[in-house]
Write a protein that binds this DNA or RNA. Structure first.
Lengths: 252, 252
DNA sequence: GATGAGAACTTATCTATACAACTAGACAAA
DNA sequence: TTTGTCTAGTTGTATAGATAAGTTCTCATC
């Protein structure tokens, strides 16, 4: 077989794999507004042609974007943009905080994206659903004044909270939104904490350096009867946030 | 194309992908102890033969396991069981050895340095001493089997535990050493958690990459009357440890 | 014993192909 | 209008093979 394209000139190897470059290119186009949330990306075949690679290489890139929550695929339909990372790599035009103020967002909390989609396996397990069940997904930023403190992604069972997306958009907190949907109270069932380093997208949103340390918490909230109502994953900026645990609160 | 089958949604096929079944099988074997943390899994080729599938199908399964943090691959070396993120509950009676033993790990401890010196301001505040008071300082490495889990530095008031350095060197755990010094019981007063990245020295001691994420906990233990007896700072390898908290105090 | 070259092995990436599963729209029939 | 069916298009899964890049061990050499 003759290698048709991209013969590395043997001088220096591209340190990053092709799929990573494609992922970067696509996320940049999403960030720049070339594709908007809800838009359908070109088909995998078209992207493969455009980048001059095999379809599987494109799929690898799309898988990475999906892992970061930027896109999601629907079999038979296409790949759709989930959320736009504001001001991606070195964009110096868009001003995130100004956008927030202009959009009239409440200080302390900014929603990047709210959508309803089938859940994946992990979300299904956390919420006690079967894979593919519809869930509401809310992604956003927690702020302290002008400083972003954390990224969060909350997942709720859609069947139980039919109007939750609207509530979340209107109200200031998850608690209020759930209350408006008839859930008076809920409790934290479990919290797990791990340390991760920031991806490029996370670093940009949190205004920290790529590779900076993050505290990631995985939490499950449940109602009074023990049924999971929210699966939340939060990335805290490692140097701006300290999680504090004291026994009094534990025993409560 | 000829209509081959099922125009109506008749026969319900248990359509779970082969790679998912393989991932489930492997994670089950890890969970059951068939493979222990640090162990090397069979090579991708061997697994492909065993399950009767192509190597890429095995890779898909392994990718899922890696995403969940169960395994990690090293190019050229193999795929290894990632000391399955050891869940480390934090509560009033947090005990390193108990946590590990409960997780089926063999707790270990390697002392790097034990000394007695005047305390600095931070240590004085944590222990309720005045700056310059003599303290015992014990630095070391916590192990699960042969895998380094964490670096620690424990600071004790020297006046109260005169022979503690010797006890620490002889005995296997802090709990035992304090008991030998007359302290029957102690409880966790507070725990603060932050994320950091590993310095070169820390990375070397923990066998991780420089810049890898760390969970740093600052803990104060106190006796039954509320007097601080230990100020401990621990750096957990972010890949190998999960801190688990029960309260609903982790605010978002 | 220490060192370095090299072989054997292993994972990572990329290409190519085929089919299955699912979607959305067109279109005919009731 | 409504319903059912078909079809073209799209993503998901699986197979197969090739090459690159990193690891580990052996062994000859100094």
């Amino acid at each position: 077989m003759t290698p048709t394209a991209t013969p590395p000139p043997s001088d220096n190897r591209p340190r990053s794999p092709v799929w990573a470059a494609i992922a970067t290119a696509l996320s940049g186009e999403i960030a720049s507004g070339h594709y908007s949330p809800g838009d359908k990306l070109p088909t995998e075949a078209q992207l493969a042609t455009r980048f001059g690679v095999n379809r599987h290489t494109v799929r690898h890139a799309l898988a990475r974007l999906a892992e970061d929550g930027l896109v999601h695929a629907r079999r038979g339909a296409g790949v759709f943009v989930s959320a736009a990372p504001l001001d991606y790599p070195i964009g110096r035009r868009t001003r995130f905080h100004q956008n927030l103020s202009a959009a009239g967002q409440l200080p302390g909390r900014a929603h990047l994206h709210i959508e309803t989609r089938p859940c994946d396996q992990r979300e299904a397990q956390a919420l006690g659903l079967s894979e593919g069940t519809l869930v509401h997904v809310c992604e956003g930023l927690s702020l302290a004044g002008a400083v972003p403190l954390a990224l969060f992604r909350s997942v709720f069972p859609a069947a139980r909270f039919s109007n939750l997306p609207q509530r979340l958009a209107e109200l200031a907190s998850v608690t209020q939104a759930l209350a408006a949907e008839g859930l008076a109270d809920y409790t934290r069932a479990s919290t797990r904490i791990v340390a991760k380093t920031a991806t490029a997208m996370q670093a940009n949103l949190l205004h920290i350096a790529q590779g900076a340390p993050l505290l990631r918490t995985d939490a499950i909230n449940q109602d009074a009867t023990g049924v999971p109502v929210e699966y939340g994953r939060t990335w805290f900026s490692g140097d701006r946030v300290t999680l504090s645990v004291t026994p009094d609160e534990i025993d409560r």
